[in-house]
Design a protein around this nucleic acid. Structure first.
Length: 414
RNA sequence: GUGGCUGUAGCUCAGUCGGUUAGAGCACCAGGUUGUGGACCUGGGGGUCGUGGGUUCAAUUCCCAUCAGCCACCCCA
């Protein structure tokens, strides 16, 4: 058994779970389209540089979580740990600046070498949207609104909370960073070991530490909002105004810091308390610096990504599979006519379960097991009359119907 | 990567203070019903008790290691 196990942190997705995930993607995609987004995909692997250059040398994702290997052509390849960098790369290599602004959504597998837990897999799936080319706050507002609308239509809005923060522009962040590091250095012996390590690499992260000692120090730390310049402040105000206008409620969380380096201004997360410590269900923000970091022209962008598994878990029970019509032949001479009838019904749009063995009783059992809405029985008698027996499997009522009228007769079971 | 809990049939779980054929419910298969499913009845198949090693006359049970899942940290979707 041991070597038949799927690799650590991966798992098979069987139909029940697949339906749940598919529903998430279908609903999210349908909503995203209403907001002007179009479905697209980038490759599952890219040159490692795509991620290394953009996600930041200090991020955990780059430093310890990437699936990177050298392929037979000696290229250094990485399985994508997220999709924003890939979309940005695509934006440049496809010359999409010509078509800016662009709005894309994607769905697919991502890979991160982490210690697995429920809701945290090494191969997991994300649905995300990217809005590239719009510098103004309206883009941020619409991006958040798209996410909120999706959560609402999935029926999980009341299980999630939107947390919002601003990271300001580069100037504001640099100014704050300097002051913060200075403050933290003065109280360095009160900080946890992890936070001391983070002090140089990524001091903003310390604001989000769960360590008690750290929290005490953080509580008295200088506040970012005091260091926002006018531009950054005005931007954030407009975002908040827009959310208010759309009745999207949120909770300001000044400690909300995105893990990746390319973010600026708006940062947000939809979180839930129903999933244990894997509570982030959808997260994103503005990444005006990203395309520049990849060597392209300064290009604004906003987006978010959502964990499909996490959303599906939040949604609870998977939707039921579509109920088929069971076609059951009786006797050898009915097999071929049953095959032809099945084909005809399928062409007409029905889902058909054609049993392949067993007597009538066994096939009826199977019809029941696959949750068929109706059974069509064709045997010698029916064949002689060019008809089939149509049995409603819920009520148990049955009648004989001429083959020619079947497609219509079945309409109520569609 | 750190700390902890768990691992017995396809699933959910009993059980063995170390002892001979390891159980239940559900699921599955067959029959009761060779032109009628769901309910019911009868019977049946399925486990090297996660894997490897150690202790022992004897290990599914104790010990160690390992793998996997889960929880918290970490990180995040």
């Amino acid at each position: 058994m041991s070597n038949l196990q799927p690799a650590r942190g991966t798992h098979d997705i069987l139909p029940d779970e697949m339906r749940a995930q598919r529903r998430v993607v279908d609903i999210a995609g349908a909503v995203a389209e209403r907001y002007g987004y179009e479905f697209m995909a980038t490759p599952i692997f890219e040159f490692s540089q795509v991620f290394k250059r953009t996600l930041g040398d200090t991020s955990d994702i780059v430093t310890k979580e990437m699936y990177t290997f050298t392929d037979k052509g000696d290229d250094e390849i990485t399985l994508r740990p997220e999709n924003t960098a890939g979309v940005a790369r695509c934006y440049m290599s496809q010359g999409l600046a010509q078509k800016a602004p662009v709005r894309f959504f994607y769905a697919g597998p991502m890979f991160r070498y982490e210690r697995p837990q429920k809701g945290r897999l090494r191969q997991f799936h994300q649905f995300g949207i990217e809005n590239i080319g719009i510098p103004g706050a309206f883009a941020d507002i619409e991006v958040i609104a798209t996410g909120a609308r999706i959560l609402d239509e999935l029926g999980v809005a009341d299980k999630t909370v939107l947390e919002l923060n601003t990271l300001g522009d580069g100037e504001s962040r640099d100014a704050y960073r300097t002051v913060l590091v200075e403050y933290l250095e003065n109280r360095i012996d009160e900080l946890s070991k992890e936070s001391r390590d983070r002090l140089n690499r990524n001091p903003l992260r310390i604001l989000d530490s769960k360590d008690e000692g750290d929290r005490k120090v953080v509580a008295e730390a200088p506040v970012f909002s005091d260091y926002l310049n006018n531009t950054s402040r005005a931007f954030f105000d407009e975002v908040r105004e827009g959310l208010a206008a759309l009745d999207i409620s949120y909770r300001l969380n000044p400690r909300l810091v995105r893990g990746l380096d390319y973010y600026s201004h708006t940062a947000f997360e939809f979180t839930t308390e129903y999933l244990g410590s894997q509570g982030t269900v959808m997260a994103g923000g503005r990444y005006d610096g990203l395309i520049g970091m990849m060597g392209g022209p300064a290009t604004p962008g906003v987006g978010w990504a959502a964990g499909i598994e996490r959303l599906a878990m939040l949604c609870g029970e998977a939707p039921a599979a579509r109920r088929p019509i069971a076609v059951v032949p009786v006797g050898e001479e009915a097999r071929m006519p049953a095959l032809k009838l099945s084909e005809e019904l399928r062409r007409a749009g029905y889902r058909v379960d054609l049993g392949h063995s067993g007597n009538l009783s066994k096939r009826m059992k199977r019809a029941n097991k696959v949750n068929a809405a109706a059974a069509l029985i064709i045997g010698e008698d029916e064949l002689a009359r060019g008809a089939a027996t149509l049995r409603d499997l819920d009520s148990g009522e049955q009648e004989e119907a001429p083959l020619a009228s079947l497609v219509d007769r079945l309409a109520r079971f569609r």
